[in-house]
């Protein structure tokens, strides 16, 4: 669930990156920032109201060093001042979504019961490219619970060809059948 505030920040960062041609650099910087706040202790320190904002900014500055560009550093400072650092992972996610959308790439989450072979993976990828007309990034998942078959999810669209789903459908159809 994306908060609308994260959406606004992501949109702002994206248009800045587009203007300056630094979209890829931003993507890396945001990844770096979200790695830092992924540490629970750092995340709680950054929103700790008993520490002055300047001290928190200082602490982040030292931990970032020269790893990120000045613009990304400004974003981090602004978020600390506004107590919005917990939005960083969401901002990153939405920024990357927006970037993929811009470049005509879709992410397809492919769930199977067993690991796919390379040939199978390529076949699925090709099929999805012709279906969507876009470049497809595959995100492979393994879930033995689906028993067999395949579930492909692109955004809100799902193609459920799993054995589990078919069994469930058969079950409801048998129950509805009149004797």
């Amino acid at each position: 669930m994306a908060s609308s505030a994260a959406k606004r920040y992501a949109q702002a960062v994206f248009s800045l990156g587009q203007e300056q041609g630094t979209l890829d650099a931003w993507s890396e910087d945001l990844a770096m920032l979200s790695r830092i706040v992924a540490d629970n202790r750092i995340a709680t320190y950054l929103i700790n109201p008993s520490v002055a904002a300047e001290r928190r900014i200082e602490a982040l500055e030292t931990s970032l060093g020269t790893n990120v560009r000045p613009e990304a550093r400004n974003l981090a400072k602004m978020l600390i001042e506004r107590n919005r650092t917990m939005l960083i992972p969401q901002i990153r996610e939405m920024f990357d979504d927006r970037l993929r959308q811009e470049r005509g790439i879709v992410v397809a989450e492919v769930t199977t019961a067993e690991r796919l072979t390379d040939a199978e993976r390529d076949a699925i990828g090709e099929r999805l490219v012709t279906m969507t007309g876009k470049r497809v990034e595959l995100l492979l998942k393994i879930d033995p619970e689906i028993i067999g078959g395949i579930i492909i999810r692109i955004g809100d669209q799902v193609i459920d060809g799993s054995v589990r789903n078919k069994l469930e459908k058969m079950r409801s159809r048998l129950l509805a059948g009149r004797l």
Binding site: D156, Q157, V158, I159, D160, G161, K169, M170, R173
Partner: peptide, 10 residues
């Protein structure tokens, strides 16, 4: 039992 797999919105 014939179930054609189709695209659903989730």
């Amino acid at each position: 039992f014939d179930d054609t797999t189709s695209l659903t919105n989730v």
